[in-house]
Amino acid sequence: MEISDILNRSKNLGMPIVKDCIYRLLMNKLTWILILILLLPGLLGLWAYTNDKDERQVQKIDGENIYYYNDNANFELVGLPIHENIRENFIEISNVFVIKFIGVLMAIMFASELINEEFNRKTIQILRTTPISPLEIIFYRYIAGVICMFSLLAVTSLIYYLIIMMNAGFYGIKEELDVLVLVIKIVMIESIAYIGIFILISVYFDRPFFLGIIYWMLWEMIVSGGNYQQITVSHYLDSILFKGLENMNWDVLAEDFGLIKTAGNNTVNLVTEPLTAVIIVFIAAMATIWISAKGMEKRQF
């Protein structure tokens, strides 16, 4: 009954809440600090582009300009198509910097702004005196957080991709688009998972920023490398990345991504299939929304 009510009312309620939340997130000073930090590697990429320009030579094949490393490059790279090497730089920087560092910080910050700041400003109390259900209060904020985080990280990934792949020319950019799509998919899954988790923390605790960082450090950084990593989001993101690269015939190993566990003297592969990983993350995200809504329902002011 409640779900059908929510669906019927979504046209009038959903849009204004989502729009306002996105506006607040984009106008937040911390968001812009994160965007500036995100742009720094892009500047480094531009510097690398100008530096490495004289290490390439072009060959025209079937009307396409294909760039290769020339004799000025490291001897291991000479003769190799540039895009086949620098795509690894893109994956590396996306995985370590965008997904595992800024992405998590952004989710913590967004969830805190969407929930905790509204507690502080007491606007949530006014919302609680209107005939809107706790699930609606949480759900539309969640949607706004996911849209915002995904958009910012996806655009950043696109910018990184273009800057890093510039040395490989238009052909290289076209050739490795699958890698960009894979990163964007992971950023989407990450937004769905982390916004839910940090909204949950914001609803139940008064210091969500601090607790979010603790969760990230203890759970996602330490547990994710161990034998019980399937209870972390990082495991599923790494699994999707690993399988994606494997399917693109990259030479990758599960241990490079920490997707193994030790059992005696043996190591066991823990990689989760991408579809299973997506389903698990999605179910976990829905659970966090539901538990957050319950927390909001019971919260007293």
Binding site: R9, K11, N12, L13, M15, P16, D20, Y23, R24, M27, R121, K122, T123, Q125, I126, L127, T130, P131, I132
Partner: peptide, 24 residues
Amino acid sequence: DCFYEHMSGLDYVAYFLQMHNYTL
């Protein structure tokens, strides 16, 4: 005070009316 300071008075009142399921 319990305002979304970035909104105009009109937007603020209309925003909460939409929570009552009125169209924009």
